[in-house]
Every structure is written in structure tokens, then in C-alpha cells.
Computed example of a mutant assay.
Amino acid sequence: MKKAILKLETLTCPSCIQKIEAAMKRLEGVNAESVNVMFNASKVKADFDAEKLKLDQIVNAIESMGYEVLKATEK
């Protein structure tokens, strides 16, 4: 498992957290229990299986919902 850390544009409402969290949990390869959306920091952290999912796919899933990903790293 790898850890994705995504820095997003400033989140403006609590419902953004729920939308992003739900989208992340639906991605095949993401460990749903590890998804953490931090409102004040505008960050998303999640563990994912790099054999099933690439970081770019996670970024695309979030950006397709209208949220800009400013920086994406994996560890």
C-alpha cells in the first residue's frame, strides 16, 4: 500500500468533505478506512494499492468533481 497526499484548493463548505470522501471510497484500490479529508488544511490522505490504482487516477477523480488539486504526492 502507498499513501496519497493531495493538497486541494481551499475547501469552502463541509459538504465538500463528504463529496470528496465518498468519491475516494468508491475508487477501486483505495482503502476506504484510510480516507481522511481535512477541511481546514484542504488536504486528502488515503492509502491505496498501487497495482490497482495510480495517483493520477485519484487526482482525476477529484478534479472531475470540480476541485483543483494543487499538489499530489505518494509515499
Score class of each variant (00 low, 15 high):
M1W: 13
K3F: 01
K3W: 00
K3T: 12
K3M: 08
K3G: 00
I5A: 03
L6R: 11
L6Q: 07
K7T: 13
K7V: 11
L8A: 09
L8H: 09
L8E: 12
E9K: 09
E9G: 12
L11N: 03
L11R: 03
T12I: 00
T12P: 00
T12C: 08
C13E: 14
P14V: 06
C16D: 08
C16G: 05
C16A: 06
C16P: 03
I17E: 07
I17A: 02
I17Y: 02
Q18M: 06
Q18N: 07
Q18H: 10
Q18E: 12
E21K: 13
E21G: 13
E21Y: 09
E21L: 14
E21P: 05
A22L: 05
A22K: 15
A23V: 03
A23N: 11
M24D: 11
M24A: 14
K25M: 08
R26W: 00
L27T: 01
G29F: 07
V30S: 06
V30M: 07
N31I: 05
N31M: 07
A32R: 10
A32H: 03
A32W: 00
A32Y: 01
A32C: 02
A32D: 11
E33Q: 15
E33L: 10
E33A: 15
E33K: 15
E33W: 02
S34E: 09
V35T: 01
V35M: 00
V35Q: 03
N36P: 06
N36W: 01
V37A: 12
V37G: 03
V37Y: 05
M38H: 09
M38K: 08
M38P: 00
F39A: 02
F39Y: 13
F39S: 01
N40S: 08
N40C: 03
A41E: 15
A41G: 00
S42F: 06
S42M: 08
S42K: 11
K43R: 15
K43A: 13
K43H: 08
V44F: 14
K45Q: 13
K45P: 00
K45D: 15
A46C: 11
A46T: 13
A46Y: 04
A46D: 02
D47E: 08
D47I: 07
F48H: 12
F48N: 11
F48P: 12
D49I: 03
D49M: 05
A50R: 05
A50N: 13
A50K: 12
E51Y: 08
K52Q: 10
K52R: 14
L53F: 01
L53A: 04
K54T: 04
L55I: 07
D56V: 06
Q57V: 06
Q57F: 07
Q57D: 10
I58F: 10
I58E: 00
I58G: 03
I58Q: 08
N60R: 14
A61I: 05
A61N: 11
I62K: 11
I62H: 10
E63V: 09
M65R: 12
M65E: 09
M65H: 09
M65A: 11
Y67N: 02
Y67T: 05
E68T: 15
V69L: 04
V69Q: 07
L70Q: 15
K71T: 06
K71M: 09
K71A: 13
A72E: 05
T73P: 04
K75I: 10
K75T: 14
